[in-house]
């Protein structure tokens, strides 16, 4: 069951404020559960035989699984309805057994449309430090 989550207050979201969470190790079950949830049934993400025939060593995570993990760190940090924009760039695949280390940092505080907003840069890296995705977000924290 879900636990309660406390969001960072505006005063805590200063430039340079950081948040980090680690997800994983990834399993094929994670890929299949996410396929059911988001509908991405590209066989490269659950069928090893197909993935090998496509030239990959094994099946690998949907990019939006890691993208969703970064969405999680952001929404559980600044508040779930606070995001105004969110952009994800995919770099490298994540494989079964990989860790997904998500890091986010406030890079700017500003005002727009009558709201106090923060600009956040985020990245997910694997256990070897290789970049899986880079992300950028803007948010209007409530607190």
């Amino acid at each position: 069951m879900a636990q309660s989550v406390s969001y960072a207050k505006w005063d805590e979201l200063t430039e340079g404020a950081e948040r980090e969470i680690t997800m994983g190790p990834l399993t094929r079950t994670d890929f299949v559960r996410f396929a059911g949830a988001n509908g991405d049934f590209n066989p490269n993400h659950h069928d090893d035989t197909y993935a090998v025939s496509s030239g990959f060593p094994t099946s690998f995570a949907q990019g939006m699984l890691q993208g969703g993990y970064v969405g999680k760190i952001l929404s559980e940090w600044v508040g779930p309805g606070a995001l105004r924009t969110f952009r994800i760039r995919f770099s490298t695949q994540a494989w079964p057994g990989d860790m997904v280390i998500c890091k986010a940092m406030v890079v700017r505080r500003y005002e727009e449309d009558g709201e106090r907003r923060v600009e956040i840069e985020a990245e997910a890296v694997n256990q070897d430090g290789a970049s899986l995705i880079k992300a950028h977000a803007t948010a209007a924290p409530r607190g």
């Binding site: 879900a2 309660s4 559980e76 309805g81």
Partner: peptide, 30 residues
């Protein structure tokens, strides 16, 4: 929300979502 490991009750519990000011369960950002 479960597939992404989200813990925030606004995605799971209607009462919690309403208490946070939403009409119903809030969809995750992606």
């Amino acid at each position: 929300a479960m597939a992404l490991g989200l813990k925030d009750p606004v995605h799971f519990d209607v009462e919690a979502a309403r208490a946070a000011g939403y009409d119903d369960l809030l969809a995750p950002p992606t």
